[in-house]
Design a protein around this nucleic acid. Structure first.
Lengths: 239, 239
DNA sequence: GCAAAAGTGTTCGTGTTACACCCATGT
DNA sequence: ACATGGGTGTAACACGAACACTTTTGC
């Protein structure tokens, strides 16, 4: 099968062979104003015209699936360095109505401040949805999204991936709100502070918030190098 | 693409359409004499003749990938109810030398007592290997196996899946040895007992070991219904 | 001064660790 | 008697939950 692509260097439209019967679909998560959100695409063409779904696409014959997922996200959002992880393959024989297509699910975490939506040439619109306001999606995309969320909630408890949803500089309260939203729990502020600070994962930037109508909080950043130095075994972020 | 299969009801050889460029490979784990083992297959045909690899096969056009994995294991081991979970898809464009093939990795846990190896018609031999004595495998199968082990080690800490590797009836020491082997840790016997028993996951069978040259230990079984009743959130098996 | 959120201190109870010890059984 | 593994008791300690309290800043 041959599909059209925009060549990333020359900007020209090129035709390339893609894998048949295999696609990629990706749940892209963002975090804003204390709410976890996911980026959905409104399809402009084909049988699912007008309906919302996860962004997705084809895998070129000569690229790995991870690279295909990175390329798709770059085409869609302009971001090339984001947190991206494969979930699993979804392969119900009836999941796609026009034939047997297996899709490989991915999920990505992005810092919304870095982000710039570009509606691609097969998508008429892209929009952030809060995760408790997700509409009916095409095919099995609700299932993929539910699985993504479930996976995210598990993953965030064993690895410091939550930081990928926050801006470079954040306060401890921002971080706590993120954990509260993702895990669906209420946390105690003093205890959360102590727990996170004791892990020594954060760098104190010696800066404070600006323009807030209360005592300004210290700003921190997460340093992945510190994390790697401290342990490869992983921390426990059970809350 | 069309492949030959043995029909499971009639026993006759039938031809069925399978998905092109997608396969399944499965790491099957067993536990015996305190050691974690994996079942490998020696390929009888094709370019990988004589080499060892993970058991695998094709996905029929009208079956889900999970069903395909169950069918493969049933064909190979005769067991239909075992613990089986998808890992993820492996899709390096060069992973398979004769063309672009994506494989979907699975891992299974079996009770070796129930087990009966049948070398299938594409496999000349099947053999259990201890996980620290794995040879060089075909294609990317070492990578898939390493990933499986890593996944198993993580999963066993959050869900009671280890029991799938033990016989129906086991002693607490057997269970402890299993955790020690999988997690690679030394555990304190008294503390392990208390921790597991406090979880109330085990049923005391009111039976004891037979024919042991020391005080006979109580036998227990794991009851998945109890587990479901106690919590859907999962236990913590950190050791 | 008051509101709002930052940040510190302290208590209390629970869970984990480490290790000493006794029990039952076969040789 | 003793070796082997089964099984119990307990003291010391670390940790997390709960909550009272002080600090900083803008209005």
């Amino acid at each position: 099968m041959v599909k059209k692509f925009i060549d990333e260097e020359s900007g020209k439209i090129v035709e390339e062979k893609v894998m048949n019967a295999i696609t990629i679909d990706c749940a892209i998560f963002g975090f804003e104003q204390g709410k976890l959100e996911v980026l959905l695409i409104q399809h402009a063409e084909g049988i699912s015209k007008g309906k919302w779904g996860l962004p997705g696409g084809w895998i070129k014959e000569d690229e790995s699936i991870d690279n295909a997922a990175h390329r798709l996200l770059r085409e869609l959002t302009g971001i090339s360095d984001l947190y991206l992880e494969q979930l699993k393959a979804f392969g119900d024989p009836k999941r796609f109505p026009l034939g047997r297509v297996i899709t490989i699910g991915y999920y990505a975490l992005i810092k919304k401040e870095d982000y710039d939506v570009r509606a691609g040439f097969t998508a008429s619109d892209a929009k952030w949805y809060k995760i408790d306001e997700i509409p009916n999606l095409i095919y099995d995309h609700n299932e993929i999204l539910t699985y993504s969320l479930h996976h995210l909630r598990n993953r965030v408890r064993n690895a410091p991936i939550g930081f990928n949803l926050l801006p470079e500089k954040f306060t401890l309260l921002h971080l706590m709100q993120l954990y509260q939203e993702i895990l669906g729990v209420e946390l105690d502020k003093p205890n959360f502070r102590r727990k996170i600070l004791k892990m020594k994962l954060l760098v104190d930037l010696k800066e404070k918030q600006q323009d807030v109508s209360h005592r300004a909080a210290k700003l921190y950043k997460f340093d992945p190098e510190i994390y790697n130095k401290l342990t490869e075994k992983g921390f426990n972020f059970e809350m």
